[in-house]
C-alpha cells in the first residue's frame, strides 16, 4: 500500500492521467479504425461475420478498390458528394462572410444577442432542423406555394407549375446543408474578423481607398485563415453526410454516406463498405492537412499578439 502511494506521488499520477485516455482511445477509436482498414482488403464470404482472409481467396483482396474506379454507382456517389459539399460550402461562405463581418460592426449589446441567435439553433436538435425544411419544401406548404406563385408570375404561361418539386433533389440537400452548417462558417470567420485591427481599415480609408477596396485589399487577405477554417468545418461533415440526403435527397443519386451505410446494412458487404469508407477518408486527408496548417499558423499568430 505504501509502495503504491509513493509510486503515485512520484510518477503514478502522471502515468494515470496520460494512460487512461490513451488506453480508451486506442481501444475504442484506433483499433476499430484499424479493423475497418483491414476489412477493406478482406473478401466477402457468406459466413457470419461476412468476411474472410486467405483460404481459396487472396489474403489481401484489392478488388474493392478496383470497383471504386470502375462501377458507376461509386463514381457517381463520390462526384455527387463532393459537388454537393463544395456548393454548400460556397453558399455558406457567400452568406456567412457578410454575416460575420456584420457581427463585428454592430454595437456590443447587439452583437451578443445576434451571436446567441447564431448559436441557438446548434442547441436544438440537428434532426429537427432538417425536419423543419421538410415541412417547408413539401408540395402543399405555404413556402412552396409562395415560391410557385412567384415563379408563375415571372415565367411565361407555358412554364407555369402547380408546385415546385423541391423535395428529394440535390437542390434540397444543398439548401438544408447550408441551413444546418451555416453557424460552422460564421463562428470561425467571426472569431478571425473580430481580431483584425480596425486601425488598418482606417489607415486605408485615410489613404483614399473606397470601402470596397478596403475590404478587398485589407480585410479579405487577413481573413483567409477564417475562410479556410469555416470552409473545412462545413465541407468535411457535408461530404460524409448521411441524415440530410436520406431525408430530403434524391434516392436515385445517393451520396457516399448512404452508400457506406447501405453496403453495410442492406447488402451486408462489409469489405466493400470499409473500402468506400477508407476512400472517403483518403479524400478528406488533403483538406484536413490544409486546415491543420492554417490552424497552426493562426494559433502561433494569436500567441504573438499577446503581450
Amino acid at each position: 500500500m505504501k509502495a503504491l502511494a509513493s509510486w503515485f506521488h512520484r510518477r503514478g499520477w502522471r502515468e494515470l492521467i496520460i494512460g487512461i485516455p490513451y488506453l480508451w482511445l486506442t481501444l475504442f477509436f484506433l483499433i476499430p479504425f484499424l479493423i475497418v482498414v483491414a476489412m477493406s482488403v478482406a473478401t466477402r464470404t457468406p459466413t457470419a461475420p461476412p468476411f474472410g482472409y486467405g483460404g481459396e481467396n487472396p489474403i489481401l483482396n484489392f478488388e474493392g478498390y478496383g470497383r471504386l474506379f470502375t462501377e458507376t454507382l461509386y463514381i457517381r456517389a463520390f462526384v455527387t458528394s463532393l459537388m454537393n459539399a463544395a456548393i454548400a460550402t460556397l453558399f455558406c461562405l457567400a452568406l456567412g462572410y457578410p454575416m460575420a463581418l456584420g457581427l463585428t460592426r454592430v454595437s456590443k449589446s447587439w452583437r451578443n444577442i445576434l451571436l446567441m441567435l447564431v448559436i441557438l439553433p446548434f442547441w436544438t436538435s440537428f434532426l429537427l432542423r432538417v425536419y423543419a425544411w421538410m415541412g417547408l419544401m413539401g408540395r402543399n406548404s405555404w413556402f412552396n406555394s409562395m415560391l410557385t406563385d412567384a415563379w408563375n408570375f415571372v415565367v411565361p404561361q407555358a412554364y407555369t407549375l402547380n408546385s415546385i418539386p423541391m423535395m428529394n433533389t440535390n437542390f434540397a440537400v444543398i439548401l438544408v446543408m447550408v441551413y444546418t452548417y451555416l453557424p460552422f462558417m460564421i463562428l470561425p470567420l467571426y472569431a478571425n474578423l473580430e481580431r483584425l485591427d480596425p486601425v488598418l481599415d482606417e489607415a486605408a480609408m485615410d489613404l483614399g481607398s473606397r470601402p470596397f477596396q478596403v475590404f478587398r485589399d485589407v480585410t479579405l487577405p487577413q481573413s483567409i485563415p477564417g475562410i479556410i477554417a469555416g470552409g473545412m468545418l462545413v465541407f468535411i461533415p457535408a461530404a460524409g453526410e448521411l441524415v440530410i440526403p436520406s431525408l430530403v435527397g434524391n434516392p436515385s443519386s445517393p451520396m457516399i454516406g448512404r452508400i457506406i451505410s447501405d453496403e453495410f446494412a442492406q447488402v451486408r458487404d462489409w469489405p466493400m463498405a470499409s473500402t468506400v469508407a477508407v476512400a472517403l477518408l483518403i479524400l478528406m486527408v488533403g483538406p484536413t492537412m490544409l486546415y491543420a496548417r492554417y490552424q497552426q499558423k493562426a494559433e502561433s499568430a494569436g500567441a504573438e499578439d499577446k503581450p
Binding site: 483499433i31 476499430p32 479504425f33 479493423i35 461475420p49 460524409g240 454516406g257 457506406i260 453495410f264 477518408l281
Partner: peptide, 15 residues
C-alpha cells in the same frame, strides 16, 4: 473530430 460519423458508426459496430 473530423471523422465522418458514418465511418465512426460502422467501425464501432464492426468492432
Amino acid at each position: 473530430l473530423i471523422m465522418p460519423e458514418v465511418i465512426t458508426g460502422i467501425s464501432l459496430l464492426i468492432f
